[in-house]
């Protein structure tokens, strides 16, 4: 489904972007937009509910209120889930976490922004791992060209 009844996806993105702008968040990519209609939400919840029934641990979580499901999904619950990736200096910043082995195994989380817009407005906003510039180098170090990298690799391989 492309658009939901309460707003077009363009308007939903505009609402999300306005919120992020108010928070000083601007360096973002074109977003991925998922239109979650009532029928899809109900269908997916039914699948999840079946999974809960088949799993003792999940059943226990539901019985103790740690998992809460909506009684019935209607158009009032329809929403857009909007995912922005982060961009710095025109380059995409990974949304995937990784470990820097050469820095003693320092864990680096991915950068991500997720906003849910429903008929009630902003229903969710999560912002994680955004960076800001402290200072800019006036004479940036050049990155190795492909040929230089291949030469260096070839040199290393022939020595070993």
């Amino acid at each position: 489904m492309d658009s939901l009844g309460f707003a077009s996806k363009e308007n939903a993105v505009q609402e999300a972007a306005h919120l992020l702008e108010q928070l000083g968040i601007r360096s973002l990519s074109e977003p991925l937009i998922y239109a979650l209609d009532a029928q899809t939400l109900q269908k997916e919840q039914d699948i999840y509910e079946k999974k809960i029934k088949e799993n003792e641990w999940l059943t226990d979580m539901k019985n103790t209120g740690k998992i809460k499901l909506k009684e019935e999904w209607t158009v009032a619950g329809e929403c857009y889930d909007i995912i922005f990736n982060v961009v710095m200096n025109g380059l995409p910043v990974t949304p995937t976490g990784y470990t820097m082995q050469q820095s003693g195994g320092v864990a680096v989380d991915g950068s991500r922004v997720e906003v849910i817009v429903s008929a009630d407005g902003i229903s969710y906003c999560s912002v994680y791992g955004l960076y800001e510039e402290v200072s800019k180098k006036t004479s940036p170090s050049p990155v190795l060209s492909l040929d230089e990298a291949l030469d260096a690799l070839s040199g290393n391989m022939s020595r070993s």
Binding site: E44, Q45, K68, D120, Y124, C125, V127
Partner: peptide
């Protein structure tokens, strides 16, 4: 970092997730 959520988003995130992009 921050996370703002409502009951609707909690219901959605029971079975919709955004992990590792």
């Amino acid at each position: 970092d921050f996370k703002y959520e409502t009951q609707l988003s909690r219901y959605v995130h029971e079975f919709v997730s955004m992990e590792e992009g």
